[in-house]
Design a protein around this nucleic acid. Sequence first.
DNA 1: AAAAACCGTTGACATTTGTCAACGGTTTTT
DNA 2: AAAAACCGTTGACAAATGTCAACGGTTTTT
Lengths: 193, 193
Amino acid sequence: MHENLLSYINQYVSLPLTDEEEALIVANFQFKKLRKKQYFLQDGDVCKYAGFIVKGAMRQYRVDDKGVEHIVHLFVENYWANDRESATMLTPSKYNIDAWEDTELLIITRADMMDLMEKIPTLVEMMRLTDERNAIANQQRLNFTLNNSAEKRYEEFAGNHPEFIQRFPQHLIASYLGITRETLSRIRKQATK
Amino acid sequence: MHENLLSYINQYVSLPLTDEEEALIVANFQFKKLRKKQYFLQDGDVCKYAGFIVKGAMRQYRVDDKGVEHIVHLFVENYWANDRESATMLTPSKYNIDAWEDTELLIITRADMMDLMEKIPTLVEMMRLTDERNAIANQQRLNFTLNNSAEKRYEEFAGNHPEFIQRFPQHLIASYLGITRETLSRIRKQATK
DNA sequence: AAAAACCGTTGACATTTGTCAACGGTTTTT
DNA sequence: AAAAACCGTTGACAAATGTCAACGGTTTTT
């Protein structure tokens, strides 16, 4: 089940991984299964692992003072689940990450990842690219959110991420978009007319 | 006037720059003055330069279909002005960046920066750190925006960035926060009571 | 098999925020 | 010095979104 990870990496870089490099990667990532609802990271803990999702679906969320969950990210296959802030600053995380479906992950500690990056320049390149892509996507999401109605945000999201719409229940999508489930329900009703 | 840049860099890294490295940096950044309202980057152009602000204030914004400006970022001294998306993808920028006050910059092309990074490992470290800090800040801004009222957003922003409040007019702050100038005016009135 | 939790929907209503138009006091441009 | 542009404010009103409560149909747990 490491093939997904290897082809994910190769997809990002100009020079494919050598056999030795692939072996090194396989040796350093650990396989982990999570049952539905099981935590990968809990609010208050320091994020120790980054997890590459081989199979399944997860969510990252924050719980506010009133106990309301706010979805920060949704993940499916080929996504990385982790809290960068906590992992790099070594501070307690403000987020929870848990499995929405039964999920299979390949996990690695930050220290091991650093080691690997010293040995495999390709990984450095991959990180630079994914970081960059990520930064741009975040920027766009922020902009879109600031300047568009709930309806437009939903349309845009549903258009660009149909797989998430099928995979996660509406109230999670609503929360991810920063609106209530009632509002989303009404928007969808409106749209079908 | 390169001192600001050099101390900015040194502030981020464990090992201070050597004299040779500093000389190399000074040689590769170009000094540039912008008068108030002058463009640093125009919608439709590819972003060629990254600019480190030595003195002054700038803004980055998008103009929507209706001709309304949406502020994306505000910059003052010790900030980097550029459009990462355009610069890395080499695509036409969707944003404008212009000088809000008379501004002095140290600018560098992406290619020259890459060169410098090969010669000065410290710069790579700096980039990693600033990118990381940036990604975390973006994440937090997005979260805060999605889950808080206009009033809370303004309070938070004014609390954490008093220098921006003094430096930029209210309607720019409002736009940055994703609200209208009228709403911000009313929020402030309310708050003084 | 029964009970509980989950999920989407709807109605009634409250709150937040936007829109449009107008004003007076700056500051900038001519 | 006059004209124009800019800026913040306010009122009246409209539109978007949230809140609360209730429901019925699933799915999950017991």
